[in-house]
Simulated assay, not measured.
Amino acid sequence: MTDKQMMKVTLVRGLGGRLATHQACVRGLGLRRMHQVVEVEDTPATRGMVNKVSYMVKVVEETPDAPQ
Rank of each mutant, 00 (worst) to 15 (best):
C25K: 06
V59C: 06
L15I: 13
E62K: 10
R33A: 12
L15Y: 00
V53W: 00
E41Y: 06
H22Q: 13
G48I: 04
T43S: 12
V59M: 05
G30R: 00
E62V: 07
K8T: 11
V37F: 02
L11C: 10
M49W: 04
K4Q: 11
A24D: 07
M34K: 12
S54M: 06
R18W: 03
R32M: 06
V40P: 03
M6D: 06
T2W: 09
T21E: 12
K58Y: 05
L15R: 09
A66K: 13
H35C: 10
P44K: 12
A20R: 15
D65R: 14
R33G: 12
R27Y: 03
G17P: 09
C25Q: 08
N51M: 11
R32A: 07
V9A: 01
T43N: 06
G14Q: 02
T43G: 03
E62T: 10
G14Y: 02
T2H: 13
T10M: 11
T43K: 06
A66Q: 15
Q23L: 01
K58M: 08
Q23G: 05
K58W: 09
V50Y: 00
V37A: 09
V37C: 07
L11T: 02
R18Q: 12
V26T: 07
R27P: 00
V53D: 00
A45D: 12
R18D: 05
P67M: 07
V37R: 13
V37L: 08
G14T: 10
T10P: 02
L15C: 11
E61W: 08
Q5D: 13
